[in-house]
Design a protein around this nucleic acid. Structure first.
Length: 803
RNA sequence: GCGAGUAUGGCGGAAUUGGCAGACGCGCUAGACUUAGGAUCUAGUGUCCCAGACGUGCAGGUUCAACUCCUGUUACUCGCACCA
């Protein structure tokens, strides 16, 4: 049989015997391994998918053999723009394209022998699934966590849809690449910022990789500071937020956001209305990227007719508009201290404003002396700050805050970068938001028993001209009765972002066929939480944060057993093209897994992708290296001819075999897949060096290799008359046998290796030292020198220090 | 600008705790078997001024000993965007 027939045979066997189906009633400790479910694109499975799915598959297969009840599920994150774009172009319902793509993906996954429990498969686009996404939205609404607000949003004029700040990264639409504009729009929002502190604290209850935790922390962006009320001449106040209250006396102007609510309120009193309105208009044309771009000059205009009053000195201070102040961060207004903030400094220079030094550190004639610099200066003292002059920065920070608090105009506050989640999309291919607008009752949630609210069939998938979802064009669908008063009402036509479905899919895998609940508490208690979650680095900020927020909310309303439902999160590196660049059609460096499977076999591809490099780092594709992995498997096949009639294990191999078992166990659970393969190569080479090996020796190699190369190992295993590996148990190693009784260690003279000696475990330091001194080359280097010190590190090295 | 990560032979990479740098594989060189070799086997393969010296981006430091720890620095990758 060739590799294709062998692979087919075992894939069929696993399907037929439901080898990987898990049941809560099965014995063994439950263990939940999760890989990010893919978006089933038309391009098919990427070799990058193969890398992470194989890695987790190896873990799943090994742990099953070790007696765990392993949940390793797969599903489809199939809502989203590409399917919709395809539908617009080809005038077919996105669900058809999605069904086709899912079929391809599934076929490809099966051809790689992944041990998913296919009985738990679902797509986020299944009404049985999105029914619960909608249901959960209603819970958000009912608990005051979802609200509608008119906000300036990122607007893509081509896709005709609102984008979250996250999606509008770089000032261009993530989907179509066209420049993003600002637009006022009424949107459904989720109060994610209410969870800032909980999301930060929750990280302590996870085992995320450090770099993942840092990503979350930076995204939440907590800062501690002081909020101060600023009075306006002639009445009114506004608030500013600062983390550098010690520079309060350095204020020479205030800057407020052109897109904020404050300037709108002040407008009637503004003297240079035209100029101000013009500037606001200009700002609205800029994306947030343009606005925050460095080295572009500090644009802005003075708001004439409005003067603020310095909170302590009482001096009148001018107020400016500046687009570097964002309306939706902090209070939308900042105090400007040009002497100690570079951004303010540049703004002051450009607009010829006063610069007052309030901290002694450094030279402020050419640039500002910022916080980082003056905090490092131990002698830094305040100046020009009335009674605070002469104090250290730390003291002044405290005393000024206290004074503002006593005056009743200052408060210590925490500020977070993280904003509320814009949850509306003006698109067709998403979960309809189950809300109804009644002219009498306002926004009314649908009755839960009426869910799912199905996506209707439409003729056109393009958004309406004013940017509403295509659903708005279907009068029949929009028209409905108010659930509260029974009067005529209209449905919400916005749909949910595609982050919605992926925010809780891991819960559904625990109980995928439940039609009474999104998942039962019993099942969730059994599986406990996701033990191991693997995904791309690009999802470790957004997706993970949304998912954690969603889960924490469900926990707070008593619907999930833990506040954090994901324990370990790791991320894999990308598979790059052989030119070390990201694979892309335009670069022509894309590798299709189907081609590789056909020519070299699924096992070769799996082994290669595990061997190609550090799992967490990007690695370029190399067909030569792939060939090397094929040769390794060929060698394993040839080793079968070395089997002799002896029973048990070959004594000379015992130590290496035990060490290899231990190593594979460690590596597979610590993402050291490349070294796992390498240790198997070493074991196979050791077998190859012998004239003959026993059947058990051979069987052991097959079992250890099985998690990575499941097809060929099952076939060879069957040929030597053993029962299937996937139904067997993982070998146990004997710790004692992994320790070698004798060992070769290096002898250094002044830190340079001059020889090696053979030591045995029971040698004491004295004996090792003597052996080292007798070493011929070592003696040569000791000649005529005085031995100052001898360092013996047991089992590792001897270093003789001479003068 | 901020945050994180990375840098080791011709190439991918290894070194789990500060203890023989280059495991394992690729590629390459020579040879064997061959009509043939993209098969297999054997030997070799960091560099150099080769009894030795040098060598893990660069410059320092700590240590008996540094890829590993510390300080500074450069380049690249990713994330964020003047975050007040």
């Amino acid at each position: 049989m060739n590799h294709i027939e062998i692979e087919k045979k075992w894939q069929t066997y696993w399907d037929k015997h439901k080898s990987f189906k898990v049941n809560e009633k099965d014995g063994g400790k439950p263990y939940y391994i999760l890989v990010e479910f893919p978006y089933p694109s038309g391009a098919g499975l990427h070799v990058g998918h193969v890398r992470s799915y194989t890695a987790q598959d190896a873990m799943a297969r090994m742990m099953r053999m070790q007696g765990y009840n392993v949940l390793y599920p797969m599903g489809w994150d199939a809502f989203g723009a590409p399917a919709e774009q395809y539908a617009i172009k080809n005038h077919i319902h996105p669900k058809e394209a999605v069904a086709k793509n899912i079929k391809t993906f599934k076929k490809q996954m099966k051809s790689l022998g992944f041990s998913f429990d296919w009985a738990r498969e679902f797509s986020t686009t299944d009404p049985e699934y999105y029914r619960w996404t909608q249901w959960q939205f209603l819970q958000f609404y009912k608990h005051g966590m979802a609200y509608k607000d008119t906000i300036p949003v990122n607007w893509c004029p081509v896709c005709k849809s609102v984008l979250s700040n996250e999606d509008a990264a770089g000032g261009v639409c993530e989907r179509c690449g066209s420049p993003v504009e600002q637009k006022e729009k009424s949107q459904w929002m989720l109060r994610m910022s209410d969870y800032s502190e909980d999301l930060l604290k929750g990280l302590d209850d996870t085992n995320f990789a450090d770099r993942v935790k840092l990503g979350q922390i930076n995204w939440i962006g907590k800062s501690e500071g002081v909020e101060v009320d600023i009075k306006i001449v002639g009445g009114g106040t506004f608030q500013i937020f600062t983390t550098c209250i010690e520079t309060l006396y350095g204020i020479t102007f205030f800057v407020i956001a052109p897109d904020g609510k404050l300037i709108k309120e002040l407008m009637p009193r503004v003297e240079n209305k035209e100029e101000v309105e013009q500037y606001i208009k200009e700002t609205s044309m800029k994306s947030s990227m343009d606005r925050t771009e460095l080295n572009k000059g500090k644009t802005g205009v003075e708001v004439k007719g409005i003067k603020a009053i310095h909170p302590i000195s009482g001096k009148e201070v001018p107020v400016y508009l500046g687009d570097f102040v964002l309306g939706d961060y902090g209070t939308g207004a900042v105090m400007a201290v040009p002497a100690h903030d570079q951004r303010d400094f540049e703004y002051a220079e450009e607009h010829h404003l006063e610069i007052i030094r309030v901290i002694t550190t450094g030279d402020i004639s050419k640039k500002a002396v910022e916080k980082q610099e003056y905090l490092e200066d131990e002698d830094a003292k305040l100046v020009n700050s009335e009674e605070f002059s002469g104090m250290s920065v730390k003291e002044a920070k405290e005393k000024i805050t206290e004074k503002l608090e006593k005056m009743g105009i200052g408060r210590r506050v925490h500020n977070y970068k993280m904003r509320d989640w814009i949850f509306s999309r003006q698109r067709f291919w998403g979960e309809p938001i189950p809300m109804i607008h009644c002219p009498k009752c306002g926004w009314v949630p649908m009755n839960e028993e009426d869910l799912p609210l199905l996506l209707p069939d439409v003729a056109e998938y393009e958004p309406t001209e004013d940017g509403e979802s295509p659903l708005a064009n279907i009068a029949d669908w929009v028209k409905c009765k108010c659930p509260k008063c029974g009067g005529d009402a209209k449905r919400e036509t916005d749909t949910m972002p595609n982050w919605a479905g992926s925010s809780w899919y891991f819960l559904r895998f625990m109980d995928p066929h439940n039609d009474q609940q999104f998942a039962s508490m019993d099942k969730m208690n059994y599986w406990n939480r996701v033990d191991w979650y693997n995904g791309g680095m690009e999802h470790t900020a957004r997706h993970l944060l949304y998912a954690r927020f969603w889960v924490q909310f469900l926990y707070n309303i008593g619907l999930v057993p833990h506040k954090e439902m994901i324990w370990t999160r790791v991320s894999h590196g990308m598979v790059l093209g052989s030119d070390n660049q990201k694979m892309s059609k335009s670069k022509g460096n894309v590798i299709n897994p189907d081609d590789i499977i056909k020519e070299f076999g699924a096992d070769t591809l799996r082994v290669y992708e595990m061997f190609m490099g550090d799992y967490q780092m990007d690695a370029p594709w190399s067909t030569d290296s792939l060939r090397g992995c094929r040769r390794f498997l060929d060698k394993v096949i040839r080793l079968k001819d070395k089997i002799n009639d002896l029973s048990g294990y070959t004594t000379s191999l015992e130590s290496l075999q035990n060490k290899t078992i231990k190593k594979i166990e460690y590596d597979i659970t610590h993402m050291g897949y490349n070294t796992a393969i390498s240790s198997l190569m070493i074991l196979a080479n050791a077998y190859d060096d012998l004239d003959s090996i026993t059947k058990d020796d051979y069987h052991l190699l097959l079992v250890l290799l099985n998690p990575m190369a499941p097809h060929i190992t099952e076939e060879l295993n069957e040929m030597i008359g053993y029962s299937p590996i996937c139904e067997g148990t993982w070998p146990e190693y004997d710790e004692e046998k992994t320790i070698e009784t004798t060992k070769e260690i290096a002898v250094q003279v002044n830190g340079k290796v001059r020889g090696t000696i053979e030591i045995s475990l029971d040698d004491d330091d004295q004996m090792i030292q003597e052996k080292a001194m007798e070493c011929e080359n070592v003696m040569k280097h000791l000649e005529g020198k005085e031995v100052v010190k001898v360092i013996v590190i047991k089992g590792k090295i001897v270093n003789i220090v001479v003068k």
